[in-house]
Computed example of a mutant assay.
Amino acid sequence: MNIRLLTANEIECRVQTVKKNGCSVLLYKDARCDMRILDETFGVLGWQRTHELINGNLFCNVSVWDQDKGFWIVKQDVGTESNTEKEKGQASDSFKRACFNLGIGRELYTAPFIWINLGPNDIKENNGKYYPAITFEVKEIGYNANKEIDRLVIVDNHGVERYRLGTQLPSPTKTQKTLSEAQIKRLYALGKKAGRTQEKIQEEVYKRYHCKPLELTKQQYDVVCEGYEKIGAKNDKD
């Protein structure tokens, strides 16, 4: 029974705690990943999943067929409720935990404490509580001979590297002004042709890049202008 290690695109990042200067991140796998690896390792007909209630708690049994021994090997674990869908959350969580017992994704237990520094553009505040304005994903991961994580790179949803195992990355600072007044006037003019007010343009820029129009990089500026140009041209034709 040779269960492979998780690849970078199979691992997801979940923000655990958020403070004004940064956040901690946990690595996890979802149930679809477990099912895919079970299919790969044991075949579609080589495993099965059942659930049962024990003392009011929902347990999952994941059974895999051992060809050499000629019988089913069963791994069991209990699930916890989710914040949204109680029964579905328990079923999914118990299944993922049972798969951990089987060895799928067990390498995630070797993950280090992950702290990502956040800058002013990365944080939202509501009633004194802080929330990340960006998301994260694993770009690279590697393992040593003991199946322990020894390489880990995490990027944000803009592709910017935010964490590298063994390296202290600097804290982000507020994006500095990069565009000229003439460029900003052109941006607003193109936005107006596309049916956007200045307030709407500012809202759309912040939603996409988490900064003010004046703080866009040249590359981001070109993308936004091109988008408004296409919408404006379509409006002219209509």
Rank of each mutant, 00 (worst) to 15 (best):
E87Q: 09
E87I: 11
E87S: 09
E87C: 03
K88F: 08
G89R: 05
G89S: 06
Q90I: 01
S92Y: 02
S92V: 10
S92A: 13
S94D: 06
S94C: 01
S94P: 00
K96T: 13
K96G: 05
R97D: 04
R97Y: 07
R97K: 15
R97P: 05
A98W: 09
A98S: 15
A98F: 03
F100S: 11
N101L: 06
N101S: 11
N101W: 03
N101T: 07
L102E: 04
L102N: 06
G103C: 05
I104M: 11
I104H: 07
G105P: 13
G105L: 12
G105S: 13
G105T: 12
G105W: 10
R106H: 14
E107V: 14
L108N: 06
L108A: 06
Y109T: 04
A111Q: 15
P112N: 09
I114Y: 07
I114D: 09
I114F: 09
W115S: 13
W115C: 04
N117F: 01
N117R: 04
G119P: 07
G119K: 01
N121I: 03
N121H: 09
N121W: 06
N121F: 06
D122T: 01
I123K: 00
K124Q: 11
E125S: 11
E125N: 06
E125Q: 11
N127A: 15
N127S: 12
G128K: 08
G128N: 10
G128V: 03
G128F: 02
K129I: 09
Y130G: 05
Y131G: 00
Y131N: 02
Y131I: 06
Y131S: 06
P132W: 02
A133I: 04
I134S: 08
I134G: 03
T135K: 13
T135N: 14
T135S: 14
F136W: 11
E137C: 14
E137D: 15
V138Y: 08
K139H: 12
I141Y: 09
I141E: 05
G142N: 10
G142S: 15
G142M: 05
G142F: 03
A145N: 13
A145W: 07
N146K: 15
K147I: 14
E148G: 10
D150P: 10
D150Y: 04
R151W: 01
L152M: 11
V153N: 10
I154H: 09
I154K: 05
I154V: 11
V155T: 10
V155K: 14
V155I: 15
D156N: 10
D156Y: 06
N157D: 15
N157S: 14
N157K: 04
N157P: 08
H158E: 07
V160S: 02
E161H: 03
L165E: 11
L165S: 10
L165R: 05
G166S: 09
G166P: 09
Q168N: 12
Q168V: 12
Q168W: 01
L169A: 03
L169T: 02
L169R: 01
P170A: 00
P170R: 01
P170M: 02
P170Y: 03
S171N: 03
S171A: 14
P172M: 02
K174A: 12
T175L: 07
T175K: 11
Q176R: 12
Q176V: 10
K177E: 12
T178M: 10
T178E: 14
L179V: 02
L179C: 01
L179S: 02
S180M: 08
S180I: 07
S180L: 14
E181F: 06
Q183F: 01
I184D: 01
I184N: 00
I184S: 01
I184V: 08
K185Y: 01
K185P: 00
R186S: 00
